[in-house]
Design a protein around this nucleic acid. Structure first.
Lengths: 254, 254
DNA sequence: GATTGACTTTGACGCAACGTAAAGGTTTAT
DNA sequence: ATAAACCTTTACGTTGCGTCAAAGTCAATC
């Protein structure tokens, strides 16, 4: 069976323009061309178009589809997995957008024209709460209530600038750590920078810093499920990696 | 204070090209223009740019932002709600894409090596055991041995594909739940998605699903220490949060 | 065989939100 | 005076086609 553009288009549910475009970008060339210049497609082209449309439905770009369908040695499984990661990232961003839109709706409906200061206060409180939830009990048991209260006091008294700095630091720790993890070497420059950043971050919550306590926290990251989950979220093994890096950084011996 | 393109750009974190483009589409015109043609912005323009960037962060198109910032009689709240609907639609499509990609991955990985297959058998047995330990007794008492045995039979007969799906679901439940917990709203979109995922997960173990039983399980998560510990592991209060979300999802009244 | 209607071709503009030159004028500092 | 740093407009490229426009081709009917 042979098809002209329109016939193939109807068969597959795409426009003739699309087929001409696919010809143009060499992702689907017609089997032959008549003397008068008409594009004629055969069975093989039908199958290939199906394949193209399949990947399109999965949200692949035509460029990537081209590589998959034209290069037979292409690793399809890997492409799929990578693509999935991208989709998950996309959804994460979308989720954040939705949350923010909903927050905005809520605040605009409440007639609360939150000033930046109020917004900031809210974030600050949330940070304290989160911190308390995540680490409070553990630290309370180990160091007593005083330390924690002092830490929280410290946080509450943060200026806006410091707040920005601490959240920035937190992000930098995680990104640097992820980068370092790829190298696989906890003694490497990047890993040591992550450890240094982690110390800096820590000093925002601890009134005094000691290498021993820092090394202790690092070990706790591995031993305690809650910490481990937090750090291993993106890459299993990250908690151990951070511990090793910090132990090297603080000169702690195993 | 007055700003040239570059100064304003640095202040707000956008490129000079962007500012020229915004001028071109009349969404942000400079306060005045010097005799030599330089664009000069003032305080009002800084504020407006902030506003534009705020809506941009929420994913609005410039065309819609233009309407919002130029037309003072524009109904902002309605625009936000409409926008939210669009985002939710977008996420639905994205979710479907992700599911399809994962299905494709699972089927393309159908050709596993023997060791993987063996591992899979081991995991399956472990899953049954865990399930038995965690829920067995409770369900046995409530629904009798037959239900549990049937459930275990069902699990054993899972295909590799289904197994992947169920473990993937389990992960997705926990991550979505964690995300939802941060919002604090069990009626919110993300929490409801978690409840939906939890239902999907459950149907892998239950031969039949009912809203009552689902709501019942949710309550049990809070009442029973073993369940509570499992769910509260990462964030105290998660078990309650999940229960509330599921109760809302199933329409169960307190 | 001429006309009609359905089909085909290439070519080119348009879309969103800028990035990235290119070519040239202006301001500021030395 | 001259260079460095800034500014201007113009215009092409990005993705995946939709949508004309102008012109040629094919099959069927009068």
């Amino acid at each position: 069976m042979e098809y002209t553009v329109q016939k193939l288009g109807r068969l597959a549910g795409v426009s003739t323009r699309t087929l001409r475009y696919y010809d143009e970008i060499s992702i689907l060339k017609p089997a032959r061309i008549t003397s008068s210049g008409y594009r004629i497609y055969g069975q093989a082209e039908v199958a290939r178009l199906q394949q193209i449309l399949f990947y399109k439905e999965l949200g692949f770009s035509l460029e990537r589809i081209k590589k998959i369908v034209t290069d037979p040695s292409f690793n399809e499984a890997e492409a799929l997995k990578e693509h999935r990661e991208q989709l998950l990232e996309k959804r994460k961003r979308l989720d954040m957008l939705i949350v923010n839109v909903e927050k905005t709706i809520a605040s605009s409906e409440g007639g609360m024209t939150m000033t930046d200061k109020e917004k900031f206060e809210g974030f600050k409180q949330k940070l304290i709460d989160d911190n308390e939830k995540k680490y409070g009990e553990e630290i309370r048991n180990k160091y007593g209530d005083d330390t924690v209260n002092k830490s929280n006091e410290q946080l509450k008294n943060m200026t806006q600038k410091e707040y920005k700095e601490v959240t920035r630091l937190e992000n930098e720790v995680t990104t640097t750590l992820a980068e370092a993890f790829k190298t696989g070497d906890p003694a490497g420059d990047i890993a040591q920078r992550a450890a240094e950043l982690h110390k800096q971050w820590l000093t925002y919550f601890w009134s005094e810093y000691s290498k021993e306590a820092h090394a202790g926290i690092a070990q706790m990251y591995v031993d305690d499920e809650r910490f481990k989950v937090y750090y291993d979220k993106k890459q299993p093994g990250t908690a151990e990696f951070l511990r090793d890096a910090i132990h090297i950084y603080t000169g702690f011996k195993k």
